[in-house]
């Protein structure tokens, strides 16, 4: 009884189903190509922790495999009588194509100052692996410094220590004219868990540098007041505008 119904259904929609099968195949190949493009262009580092880049290789392989299996099936003349699922509607297919549309139409950019929206941290949770950063403090990045501050407790113990860090410029309207933050996002898995962190920097021309400009700041810490807290403030001796680094995020 059920079987009879199914059969006539299929008869009816045969043409539509054939077209849908090709559309599905096209989407699968499209997604394989999109993942491959992300890897080749380096855009992948705008989205996920590089530790998990291998997952995208897996995705390219599996999307390609499923797309090829679908194409082979169609070329052999289809299989309609034992189709597994009720037909998807066109809108349902379109939903699966959304990543492809956003991925190709919206230029790929890492999260920047507009994504911070006041929510930037001067402290980091100290995990177990606090001692893993490079031993030479002149090599420390923003995250390493914040971890060191966290461990030390007394901000004054960093007075006079030299630092050389990169990050993007983040300013809020309430910051003094000569102050900005050199900011980074940290991600553990992907941008869904991105957390903004930053060091306050004092530099006479701070208000002339546009938001999101990537800079290298060299200078020394001096305890100061920032947003109502007493923290080590980086007094910049030199500031250099740089290209956005290959890996815009830090991986804690």
């Amino acid at each position: 009884m059920q079987a009879v119904e199914r059969h006539s259904d299929h008869h009816h929609d045969h043409a539509r189903e054939a077209v849908q099968a090709w559309v599905k195949t096209a989407i699968l190949f499209g997604l394989a190509a999109y993942f491959a493009y992300n890897i080749l262009s380096g855009n992948l580092s705008n989205y996920i922790n590089e530790r998990f880049a291998w997952l995208s290789y897996v995705a390219v392989a599996l999307f390609g495999l499923l797309g090829a299996a679908g194409a082979a099936e169609r070329l052999r003349g289809g299989h309609t009588h034992h189709h597994h699922h009720d037909h998807l509607s066109w809108p349902a297919l379109a939903v699966v194509a959304v990543p492809l549309v956003l991925g190709t139409l919206v230029p790929s950019r890492p999260l920047g100052s507009a994504a911070i929206n006041g929510n930037i941290s001067l402290t980091v949770a100290t995990g177990a692996a606090v001692t893993t950063f490079a031993s030479d403090p002149s090599q420390w990045n923003v995250l390493d410094w914040l971890r060191a501050f966290n461990n030390a407790g007394d901000p004054a113990s960093f007075d006079g220590k030299a630092a050389n860090v990169i990050g993007f410029v983040y300013r809020e309207a309430t910051f003094p004219e000569d102050t900005f933050m050199v900011a980074r996002f940290t991600i553990s898995c992907c941008v869904a868990d991105a957390v903004a962190i930053g060091l306050p920097v004092v530099w006479p021309g701070a208000d002339e540098i546009p938001q999101d400009t990537w800079v290298r700041v060299q200078g020394a810490f001096q305890t100061g007041s920032f947003r109502g807290d007493t923290v080590p403030v980086l007094r910049a001796a030199s500031l250099e505008i740089i290209e956005q680094p290959e890996h815009p995020y830090l991986y804690p």
Partner: peptide
């Protein structure tokens, strides 16, 4: 920003 966040989840999850 929306697109970056969305694709981040999708790219990590799809595999």
């Amino acid at each position: 920003i929306f697109s970056t966040r969305f694709l981040g989840i999708f790219i990590e999850a799809a595999p």
